[in-house]
């Protein structure tokens, strides 16, 4: 089961009001390679994954991704919470605002709503672990593009943290793949 701890994983600071930037950051809130996708993807794959190590990694990284989803939602909210209507009008966030007000909503930067079609769970552990490694690289790349378009130092700092987490997660899924491959080889011969 899941327990909530009343704290963010990272101390988020946002120094500016910027609805246009918020609309871009929301890509990681509800987009295909975002944190919600990552969390749901890994937690979904748990049931058919062999080896205790891999089940643990899917559980723990999946849980961490939900904590990242919370960070992204926080960044989006802090960027718009003090925005006036004039600051919102004429930005890509205006379309979000007329539907959802200032509340973060899981769609991507273009407004495409989150869907399970963004994730894969094949029930095949080798396919699933490769899917996860690819997902971590895509998330890492997305954070680099977001860092490129951001101009708020607090936002950039949080994005750098989240990007580094993707690199560590890639390493762990790579290790899990080695462990699962080893296990499947072993079962083949004995």
């Amino acid at each position: 089961m899941w327990i909530y701890e009343k704290k963010l994983q990272y101390p988020v600071r946002v120094y500016s009001t910027n609805p246009a930037l918020a609309q871009m950051i929301i890509e990681q809130f509800g987009g295909a390679d975002g944190e919600l996708s990552a969390g749901i993807r890994y937690l979904t794959q748990r049931w058919t994954m062999p080896t205790n190590q891999a089940k643990a990694i899917l559980t723990d990284i999946g849980t961490e991704e939900l904590a990242h989803w919370e960070i992204i939602g926080t960044i989006v909210w802090k960027l718009v919470k003090d925005a006036t209507i004039d600051q919102i009008k004429g930005t890509p966030f205006e379309a979000h605002y007329v539907n959802h007000g200032k509340s973060p909503y899981p769609h991507d930067a273009s407004g495409v709503p989150w869907t399970a079609a963004f994730i894969n769970s094949k029930g095949d552990p080798i396919a699933d672990l490769h899917e996860n490694m690819a997902a971590e690289q895509k998330a890492r790349a997305t954070y680099e593009w977001l860092i490129n378009v951001s101009d708020d130092p607090g936002v950039i700092d949080a994005l750098r943290f989240l990007r580094e987490r993707e690199i560590v997660h890639f390493q762990r899924f790579g290790e899990a793949l080695r462990i699962v491959q080893e296990e499947l080889d072993r079962k083949k011969y004995y």
Partner: peptide, 30 residues
């Protein structure tokens, strides 16, 4: 094949949180 990480040194928790990892060998900033 991804090589296994071998635990070596670690950052202090304060620095680790700022950098996004406990492990210097996994720290690859943009």
């Amino acid at each position: 094949y991804v090589p296994f990480q071998r635990l070596n040194q670690v950052f202090e928790p304060k620095e680790a949180l700022m950098k996004g990892t406990l492990f210097p060998e996994l720290y690859m900033p943009y």
